[in-house]
Design a binder for these strands. Structure first.
Length: 410
RNA sequence: GGAGACGUGGCUGAGUGGUUGAAGGCACUGGUUUCGAAAACCAGCAUAUGGGAAACCGUAUCGUGAGUUCAAAUCUCACCGUCUCCGCCA
């Protein structure tokens, strides 16, 4: 655990946690012994017919009860402290995860596609989309600060989004995913379940009722089966969630804010899987999830590379993560478009999602998730890679039938 | 927004203060029977946690949390949720 935490650069005092746990168990034992006595004597009181003896026993138990109250209070405070620390304990990263502090240390493991060679000066997506009236991108959307209200997509821009959604719906349904349109107003409890919390609460938009707007469909989709005991035969459960996503991006410090790269409100299709509790299965499904999205991007013909995320770039619950990053010609760099991670039973323990195995033993399921497609971020690479000398944008073959059979947006 | 009803194990459904972790049924598991199956009959069958090699024992759990009591599924309060009717809206 200590090595795992160090690899993730998570600062946690495990020795303190262990000693807190010892304290907790010691007090718990005392409380349970006293409760046991009360239970035993209470039964005697019920059975015994002698009124005088009854009164005596009741008096005795009254005193024991006071004792219990004091010890329970101690148990409560120790447990609270213990719980707070427990929630900060990270899942152990896989041995194949490279060391590193930030996304700069992620390792490229694959590249695909031919980067476009333009015989004209290429424009960035803001210029292209403005010229084609695909969005209401204004000056304030091009600055160094992330605008609170983000640009719309209109006309061909809106149509292109629907084309992508429709195509993605078909593509991922064919791979056995059940489409779900989940609620995005979620209880905070669900954010603890997915291990987005405890973290920075400032990252979430909250409602007057204390609920949060989810930053990804992963949150409500995982919550769908909270507390359930699943039939093993239904595993793996594969869902394709489609939802708006809300992120305050409180800690992004003006990074990647230009145009449609990073926005507070976007739409995302997300692959979520609940599987049997087997490391081998998790690994297999993880590769599969990531491959699904790679295939999807390949079918759109956009050059990309895949990286394996380093320890410092992993979330609290993630065992391993791949990011797919698409080529952005104008910036001459790759931009993240997808994240595929698996969690073993880290999330399902918190949600209480279980099933009975062949031996009749209760098991916590494993969970995984991976971006299918985010809009509008995908538009950045799609538009820039497919731009033509005349300012038009070539529509990828697979999207044509959703764009009225046309070849270009002009 | 108004009025009422209700939340019990994988499901269904009894249970209004005292060996009730919880009757009965369904489902499931094992057995008897059968050439095999069905049916029938018999037996078993909640979860978490602490101790134990195990058998087993302790504790907690009847929507959630608090309270009353020697003792709570059962009484009180708050919250969450479901259902029905009315109103409003689409």
């Amino acid at each position: 655990m200590a090595l795992g935490a160090r690899k993730k650069l998570v600062d946690i005092d495990l020795d303190k946690l262990i000693s807190l746990d010892d304290d907790r168990l010691a007090v718990l034992k005392e409380v349970e012994e006293l409760r046991s006595e009360v239970n035993r004597v209470s039964n005697d009181i019920a059975r015994d017919q002698d009124p005088a003896l009854k009164i005596q026993l009741i008096e005795e138990m009254r005193a024991v009860k006071e004792d219990i109250k004091a010890k329970e209070e101690k148990l409560r405070s120790v447990t609270e402290e213990w719980q707070t620390l427990m929630l900060q304990v990270p899942n152990v990263p896989d041995i194949s995860v490279p060391e590193g502090a930030s996304d700069a240390d992620n390792m490229e493991i694959k590249t695909w596609g031919q980067k476009p060679a333009f015989d004209f000066e290429p424009k960035d997506h803001v210029e292209i989309m403005n010229a084609l009236k695909m969005s209401g991108l204004r000056a304030r959307h091009q600055g160094a600060r992330l605008p609170r209200i983000f640009p719309d997509r209109r006309g061909e821009g809106a149509r292109l989004c629907f084309a992508i959604w429709n195509y993605a719906m078909e593509f991922f349904s064919d791979k056995g995913f059940t489409p779900v349109i989940p609620p995005v107003i979620v209880r905070k409890q669900n954010l603890y379940g997915t291990a987005h919390l405890p973290g920075d609460v400032e990252d979430y938009y909250m409602t007057q009722d204390g609920d949060a707007l989810a930053g990804t469909a992963e949150v409500p989709l995982m919550g769908m089966h909270a507390g359930e005991i699943l039939d093993k035969a239904v595993l793996p459960l594969k869902y394709l969630g489609f939802s708006p996503c809300y992120r305050r991006e409180a800690g992004s410090h003006g990074k990647d804010v230009k145009g449609l790269i990073r926005v507070h409100e976007f739409y995302k299709m997300e692959q979520v899987i609940l599987s049997e509790a087997s490391h081998e299965t998790s690994v297999k499904l993880h590769e599969e999830l990531n491959r699904n999205t790679e295939e999807f991007i390949e079918s759109l013909g956009i050059p990309y590379h895949t990286v394996i995320n380093c320890g410092g770039d992993l979330g609290l619950g993630q065992v391993k993560k791949y990011d797919i990053e698409l080529w952005v010609p104008k910036e001459k760099t790759y931009r993240e478009i997808s994240s595929a991670s698996y969690f073993h039973d880290f999330q399902t323990r918190r949600f209480g999602i279980r099933y009975k195995d062949e031996a009749g033993k209760m098991q916590f399921a494993h969970s995984l998730n991976c971006t299918a497609i985010p809009t509008p971020r995908i538009l950045v690479s799609l538009v820039e890679n497919n731009q033509q000398a005349d300012g038009s944008v070539k529509i990828p073959e697979v999207l044509k039938k959703y764009m009225g059979g046309r070849d270009f947006i002009k």
